[in-house]
Design a protein around this nucleic acid. Structure first.
Length: 162
DNA sequence: GCCAACGTTGGC
DNA sequence: GCCAACGTTGGC
């Protein structure tokens, strides 16, 4: 199922990507909770704004590293609100199209839940039986916030040793 | 570091 | 509205 076809109202499980050199699962564990800012993709924003509800569980994925993969679980601790980093000209993700009166980008808060006893690498995800259709294993999948089915979520947690 | 895939921008 | 050019993502 393509992400664009996903029925937003039914999703309770998600996957977010972060480069560990930027913000790793260990850093999330240390700060307990953080705002998930800097998303500048409309599809990802729409998932945050319209789909992600308080308490929804989130797979935490490390991208752009070796190996990439799912490293733990977080949960939504505050639903979408305007991403104020878009209004700051000194911020890397500054976007002059967004203003306090008409914010176009959203962020949310997530909190740490658990780190997997073992990382589930991207090659493992691709090889696993039962993960067909998982967005992150599709070729060219760049979406940084993705819906995940309940069955896929449960299987990946099991693979990670939770 | 390379480059394919993808999203966005802007000329027309 | 089309599409070429461009910038970014992220696996490899």
């Amino acid at each position: 199922m393509a992400a664009s076809e996903y029925n937003i109202g039914m999703a309770n499980y998600w996957l977010v990507k972060s480069e560990p050199s930027c913000f790793s699962i260990d850093e999330l564990a240390q700060v307990e909770s953080t705002h998930w800012d800097g998303v500048r993709n409309y599809q990802a924003r729409n998932f945050m704004r319209d789909g992600m509800k308080l308490g929804d569980k989130v797979l935490y994925y490390h991208s752009n590293c070796d190996p990439p993969g799912v490293v733990g679980v977080a949960e939504v601790s505050r639903e979408a609100y305007p991403d104020f980093t878009a209004w700051d000209p000194t911020n890397d993700h500054f976007d002059p199209k967004s203003t306090p009166d008409n914010p176009i980008w959203m962020m949310m808060d997530i909190k740490f839940v658990a780190k997997f006893p073992r990382e589930v690498s991207l090659p493992e995800l691709k090889q696993a039986e039962g993960l067909e259709g998982l967005v992150v294993i599709q070729k060219g999948s760049r979406l940084s916030v993705q819906p995940v089915s309940e069955a896929h979520f449960a299987l990946i947690c099991q693979m990670g040793g939770l």
